[in-house]
Design a protein around this nucleic acid. Structure first.
Lengths: 343, 343
DNA sequence: TTTGGCACTCAAAATATCAGAGTGCTATTT
DNA sequence: AAATAGCACTCTGATATTTTGAGTGCCAAA
């Protein structure tokens, strides 16, 4: 038996993976023989399976169960075997429908998209815009709430709005706040948030701010406004994964849900994705996050023009329907990008 | 045996309920006798339990299991038996800590509170601000996003911000948008959102708007901005209820989670609460929502000054620790109200 | 090299057994 | 008359046992 994977082995491996994806049950030689019209007898298939196991593509839960694909197998599958399909019409329609901003805010749209991803894929949808920093500053606004509290509203080029209530040690009149905002809007317009941060610091250190109380105040407020605020992750469709047979174990379930309530680990993973353009696939332990063992993540960055704005994707079991999900994620990211660009 | 509930029966009923709350297991006559120092023999207790069952306070899952409190029993318990305690110091501290607006937006605070409620009660926390309509208008602002899209930002008296992207059939210059906002701010300041709605309609029907393009446009935009947007419900700590023995059944679990993803039914229930001031308790089917069977909801409205702003509460199993949770909900609502008032 | 046959394995399902917690009833005590 | 001890009976949940069947590995034949 040759060490390289020959054509026949590939066929069989593919058959096993696909069967396992749809049934979640270990596949035996007979089953495979009957379900797919392969021209080999069960005995032959057994031999091949034995080889595949040796090569690390298959594993057997125990001696007399069928075999189950390993992570290596899935990896091989998505890299070499899988023919990624398109997204079918109904689903495209549905995705497009939810990629609209009219009548909602950006956050709401992200949540909608996440929900759509989950309902189309039947797994969990995820949308994150972790680094607000690449966003372009458009507008800042201060509103007096009384008792030294100021509501700061920060609008970025793509229409997303962040607001934050800040406590100021000195009080400003409403007109003063307007003038401060005007000043900042002139100063910062068109800069990325990252640049804004730098610029604010530079201005604060300049002489001007020593003389002008308002100017100094404005800079101080803007600094507080811009300071990192936790980025949101929208995870939707958690119920979907409760239906999967691999998660019947309630403690496992709980672990996963806890991790998703935390979001921290997930965020770091998504941050890694944001630097890699296009579609990314993490199979099981490839994500190096132990909570993700047994689960796969398919992501894609979405852009507004040339700026990477965030990451979206689908989380499911390792035996997920890659062929269907990959194009869904890809398509959704592109639609969302198109949407965001057109402001 | 008298038909009214005598003192002895009360004692025993209380003991059973409290035992069941902490163990979730049917209580037998012997258990109750040993665990609490009641001066009756098991046989006596059996007789009494039999009576209590007849009266509808207890039920037996089957002949040789112990007995379980019915909804009627819980209702009687919270109405007549329960001595509501206070909130202990650590928890008060924790709640107070999260009742702060500094550095976050109102939504974020609501989510924080919900999370706090869940972590303090060990059940699920819920916060909803269903009718934005009682809020007081403070400020509106339009920002041009290009290609006839306008970002509308609506700020209400308590500092909550709603933003919405609206599509306009005619395009406005940025200065025009500012003038429009100024006009509206003058016109609407201090009105409740409900009043704002009426006022806008009246103004639209007046002659003025026929002559002034901007004025008419402003009214049109404001109408779109104010149009009801889905109100958010923040439900946190869903993992907590996965730990409870009554929800080991995965299908039940799934039902509940689906219902909470939907939020619709829950919202209508909370809407009902908002009219009733103070603490409300719904035990099991009392909420008339079938998904809530086996679950109880404790809510309290929270106010900003005199205006009811929303509802918060805790969702748990019917056998929840009412004595602990009720004061928690009460205290949290009051703290939140205090917080919101002080702008 | 492929295939049919066969003994062997192992988990999951079905069945049987058992212990224990609980009840209801009756007779007895207070 | 109310409270209690005693006792037979019931039912579930836990544990042990058996059965079943899908699957493997290997050998010998095609």
């Amino acid at each position: 038996m040759s060490d390289s994977i020959n054509n026949r082995s590939k066929q069989i491996l593919e058959a096993i993976i696909e069967d396992y994806i749809s049934t979640a049950e270990p596949i035996g030689s007979r089953t495979i023989c009957s379900r797919h019209g392969l021209p080999f007898s069960p005995a032959t298939i057994r031999n091949i399976m034995s080889d595949l196991e040796e090569m690390g593509f298959l594993a057997s839960p125990h001696t007399s169960a069928g075999r189950v694909p390993t992570e290596k197998a899935y990896r091989f599958y998505v890299d070499s075997l899988l023919a990624v399909g398109g997204v079918d019409k109904k689903e495209r329609e549905k995705i497009r429908q939810h990629c609209t901003l009219t009548g909602k805010d950006v956050d709401r749209m992200f949540r909608d998209i996440s929900r759509t991803l989950s309902s189309v894929s039947r797994y969990m949808g995820i949308v994150a815009a972790p680094s607000f920093t690449t966003n372009i500053f458009r507008h800042i606004e201060f509103i007096n709430l009384g008792s030294n509290r100021i509501l700061a509203i920060l609008v970025s080029e793509n229409g997303s709005v962040q607001n934050k209530i800040i406590e100021s040690d000195q009080s400003f009149k409403s007109e003063e706040l307007i003038r401060m905002a005007n000043y900042l809007n002139g100063l910062l317009k068109g800069l990325s948030i990252a640049q804004v941060k730098k610029r604010v610091i530079i201005e604060m250190e300049s002489d001007k701010s020593d003389y002008d109380r308002l100017l100094a105040g404005a800079l101080r407020l803007s600094k507080q406004t811009i300071s990192d605020s936790e980025s949101e992750i929208f995870i939707e469709g958690q119920v979907n994964i409760m239906e999967l047979p691999e998660f019947t174990d309630i403690t496992r379930m709980k672990e996963i849900f806890s991790a998703f309530e935390e979001k921290g680990q997930l965020l770091s993973l998504l941050d890694r994705c944001i630097t890699a353009p296009g579609v990314n696939i993490f199979i099981g332990s490839e994500s190096h996050i132990n909570i993700m063992s047994g689960m796969s993540l398919i992501t894609s960055t979405f852009l507004s023009g040339k700026n990477t704005l965030g990451v979206l994707g689908v989380i499911g079991p390792t035996r997920m329907g890659y062929g269907k999900v990959i194009p869904i994620v890809d398509y959704t990211a592109k639609m969302l990008g198109k949407m965001l660009q057109s402001n």
